[in-house]
Design a binder for these strands. Structure first.
Lengths: 127, 127
DNA sequence: TTAGGTGCAAACAATTTGCCGTGTT
DNA sequence: AACACGGCAAATTGTTTGCACCTAA
């Protein structure tokens, strides 16, 4: 019971992700696969991406909703995976990182966002 | 022409954001202000947050849509603000940062995400 | 007076979910 | 045959926008 079966769609979706260095959205993957799998549905793409992400086979990058901050000077954040709270961190913003990124990539780097994840002190205590 | 006026709502919204160390969503701000401003609308909250963010008075934190990555080992990313592409960066993932964040915050830090922003080489060339 | 702002509701966009037929085991 | 899976469409959720009215300047 509760076992997972083979699924052609899941394999397709995983292969598509594995075969690209882009970081596609669900929609992009859907568009890529649609031509050769005309009856693939977007819902299935979402379902399998979530499934794969939940079991750790792939990674998700996202803030589910926009958040706002009156402090406009760049500073690192901590995001609690249990309660969703976002905290400011009193760590220095390291401008040298931007320089390193520029050198490593050749892109025009104007800044960065550093977000830590884990369980916040409040949620830790509840256990 | 094109001048900006005083607006009680904008002031309220900005004050609400200024007065918290949380990083609220538009919805949260709306809920906070609603009781004392019963005819405030969520659309106005969004409109003013966007306005304030565009002029740099406040900061936005978000990935507009989820993106997926078959590479599950943590690594830094570069996000082009012109075309929206996300690239991998060949910079080392610095585990020492997590330790620093733990010490600075007291939260349980399990990892971090480092995202650089700017204009990618491709978009730079188009100009 | 006049252009910008607001409220409201409709539109849009991203994602999830229920239902039911299909395919894997 | 059982039950996970996929297709489809409806439902949710987050965000934007059009329009008629309101308000600061």
């Amino acid at each position: 019971m509760n076992g997972k079966r083979y699924s052609r769609q899941r394999e397709l979706i995983y292969a598509a992700l594995k075969g690209t260095d882009q970081h596609p959205t669900a929609e992009m993957i859907y568009q890529w696969l649609k031509p050769e799998n005309p009856n693939l549905s977007l819902g299935t793409v979402y379902r399998n991406l979530n499934l794969l992400a939940d079991e750790g086979a792939i990674a998700r990058m996202a803030f589910p909703v926009e958040r706002y901050d009156a402090e406009t000077r760049p500073h690192p954040h901590f995001c609690c995976q249990a309660c969703g709270s976002v905290y400011d961190l009193s760590l220095p913003y390291d401008k040298a990182l931007d320089e390193q990124a520029l050198l490593a990539s050749g892109h025009d780097v104007t800044g960065h966002e550093l977000i830590f994840y884990g369980t916040c002190a409040k949620c830790k205590d509840v256990h």
